[in-house]
Amino acid sequence: MTIDSDILKNEEKISFALRSLYHRKGYAPYRMGKFEDYELYVKNKDFLPTSELISFTDTNGRLKALKPDVTLSIVRSARPEAGKVQKLYYDENVYRVSESSRCFKEIRQAGLECIGDVNEDLLAEVLGLARESLRLISDGSVLSVSHLGIVGGVLDAVRLEPDARRQALGFIAGKNLHELGALLRENGAEKEAAERLLTLAACSGAPAEVLGRLRALACPQQALSELERLIAKLGEDGLRLDFSILGDMRYYNGIAFQGYVPGVPSGVLSGGQYDRLLHRMGKAGGAIGFACYLDKLERLEVKGHA
């Protein structure tokens, strides 16, 4: 059977290219049903980008929901064994409320997850695959990388109350240095620690340049070294560092990243390490993964792959 690639939609072409890439790299396909136990999402509702779910009662009386996310299901079914890692990829529809229309929307996502013994080589492999995925989508793509260990450490040093800390994280994510500065002053943050946080929040750009600035900043050493080694392994091409990329630190830790392609106004790929989610779900080990938002690519001119 041959398929005429002209009839394929953008997101289909990209989905095939991504699946083929992950398959070649030794990842196994993960297939899930449309429905999942409602309880799974309620227990981890802050992990989800949406608080609304499409729920219904199954014939056996169990409360179910149309899946708003794939990662939680993968983590739930994972059986991490010491010294081993499970590598999975998926291409699934998820159901979320659209920010603009406030209605439920079907969103197609492709991505991969690694669960188990996640070491530095694997972190580099996943970051490399994220960069490669973006390249399949478009020329001129960029993967922005951050390290929550660095942001968390520098933020801890200013010692804010939980409320102020939450606000500070919001300002860092929005590159809002003027309000971050005011917040730190109002909360009587120690001057040197506050300066360090403001400098970090302003740091973004080519890895070599940003790493140079970070070395002068007295950042958490272990996290900084890890980031340096990862960049050295991957090479700088197509990467930039940006510490406005954060995830909810109750679930995420370590590396976090966001991918952009020219012509799409928001991130088309997002991912990171989520050991803490694993631990919250009572599992040992580490985890890292990412998702590509195929629905955002509908209007993008696709490169000549079929």
Partner: peptide, 11 residues
């Protein structure tokens, strides 16, 4: 204010 992708490409 700035668009997040624009900030990456026109930093």
């Amino acid at each position: 204010i700035a668009n997040k992708a624009s900030f990456v490409f026109h930093k």
